[in-house]
Write a protein that binds this DNA or RNA. Sequence first.
DNA 1: TTTTATTACGCAAACGTTAGAGTAAATTTT
DNA 2: AAAATTTACTCTAACGTTTGCGTAATAAAA
Lengths: 345, 345
Amino acid sequence: MKQKITLKKIAKEFGVSISTVSKALKDSHEISSEVKEKIQAFAKYYHYKPNSLALNLRNQKTKTIGVIIPEIVHHFFTKVITGIEKLANEKGYNVMICLSNESYEKEVLNLDMLANGVVDGIIASVAKETEAKEDYRHFTELIDNGIPLVMFDRVVDEIECNKVIADDKGGAFLATEQLIKNGCSNIALITTPDYVTVGHERKEGYLKALNEYNVPTNEDLVITIDDQKSIDDQLNDLFEGNTIPDGIFAVNEIYAATVMKVARKFGHSVPDDIEVIGFTDGLISEFTSPSLTTVAQHGRTMGQKALELLLDEIDSQDLQYHHKTHLIQTDLKVRNSTKKVQLQN
Amino acid sequence: MKQKITLKKIAKEFGVSISTVSKALKDSHEISSEVKEKIQAFAKYYHYKPNSLALNLRNQKTKTIGVIIPEIVHHFFTKVITGIEKLANEKGYNVMICLSNESYEKEVLNLDMLANGVVDGIIASVAKETEAKEDYRHFTELIDNGIPLVMFDRVVDEIECNKVIADDKGGAFLATEQLIKNGCSNIALITTPDYVTVGHERKEGYLKALNEYNVPTNEDLVITIDDQKSIDDQLNDLFEGNTIPDGIFAVNEIYAATVMKVARKFGHSVPDDIEVIGFTDGLISEFTSPSLTTVAQHGRTMGQKALELLLDEIDSQDLQYHHKTHLIQTDLKVRNSTKKVQLQN
DNA sequence: TTTTATTACGCAAACGTTAGAGTAAATTTT
DNA sequence: AAAATTTACTCTAACGTTTGCGTAATAAAA
């Protein structure tokens, strides 16, 4: 394997010192134009590029930020990354993406790796396993080490750092409200276990809407999905019980798409018999039939905001930096899984 | 912002030399157990972690590999990354993901960035813009600099490096063959412009199948999609022409899902009037109705294989390293957009 | 008691880079 | 002609780490 070209090698080539080469390549006035020209030509010919590691070590910064996400096959996370990447690029930062695969252990590993000088700051969304475990020492340790951290989407209240979250509760409220206004009275909720914070928040919004509009809640209509088992099977219960829902709010797009499929299997029509709203930033909703009305999360915006906050903290010399929690608005994207009812204001 | 703890600081704390600290932390026999114990305790308390930059610089390797993909919101690419990540983890490597966003310029930038000592090797799929431009100097430069490169999916023939590609032609053949065997005689192709290599390959497979089974080709049935314009609009032509297709092969999942939607709009039923097969590794296909029969690409496998080849080259001292092109088999995932015909062998 | 081993540390170089300080030689000024 | 300035370089330290080598002091062997 060929060796990379370095200042040292160029210096040797011309019988000058390393610093002469460095300065020549920087077009320093300290170096004669004659020497500068030949060194520059040589460097160009061999495509000399300064070694980033050396530069980073010297400058004590890497111009790279780390992003830890639980899953990359989720459209929402890729949207967030797109947002981060775009702004990072404009600001001259590189992005290093790591996956925790929802595993606590991998999250710790990733954090460890990133913390040791590799990045100037970290943006993270915590793994489900970590949320279940409630062990966040790896994050606090990071902060103790003075590495700026921004949490997004799945955040931890106890941790003192900048945060960016979608208005999950508000979005769920909006969705449920829409179903109520469309005339639904038996509104089901398809959600995750409670330890998944976003699931929890969305459930809160659902309950708030029912409450505010005096729609009685019904425990039978709340289905908590265990991702380890078949989603289809777990949804069967909903249509085999005493109360068949006329509206369904699902906390994500997969659940929403799946419940439509299962509803159809039971002979129900969407949106005529049952209206369905999902929660997402995904692609699937557009291609189901009927296409899914969803709560849009604006993942890109979240990513951008997260990076904005991170760079803000990185640039801040302030020892008493004040952390913020930024709420990204969600809104309803009406498609064809809900009826087009004329709403009176 | 707090400062990171270093060997130097620990050395100062105990009034010993830096090397003593380094050796103490490595439990060297050269250091008395008394000194070792107190230094180790101190380091543990302040969670000392060696600075990776310094280590990488010294060891002349980073244990990090870079991945450049055109788009992260594509399920196929995220699958590939999942495959890379998994194996990388097992082998103790980190993964740095960069997005070119299909832009030539960003690809050059990313490559530049990664090339300067940041990674030990690179896995890349080239941007559409680069394919159109046919300017691959940034890749050859990389190779000239001795940085191992593996290309996947969208590869460049002229470049001398390890490659991993899906059997696009074979998959397309399989899909078209299936349509023919199901009795279709007017088989449409929804494809990308020809400069997108995978689109080109899939078209080849389509033509090969038609040819082999003596099905006449029909230029009117080949639709080349311009991603800049509305896909729906471009597909209208297909159903407004003289020959209405009874089978459609689309080179990706979005085209396939969209063409089903448009077909329905024109009053055709899938799979009764028209059978549709897509090409992908995506999520959408499962949730369309009918669900889409597709050619599975095995993105994870591709990712794993790509990393395998890369590590192979990194570890090889061989100056005359022999590059390979690895073909990943594709196969048909039959769902409900095709008829269940009993095939006679 | 002298020689040899052992223990426990420090020194220095190396990875690649930059930038301020230092220094010969050449040139200009007085 | 002497002094001052400019030119064109080199030296050195620093970023954080590792490791072979050197070396005191102590301990063991002859």
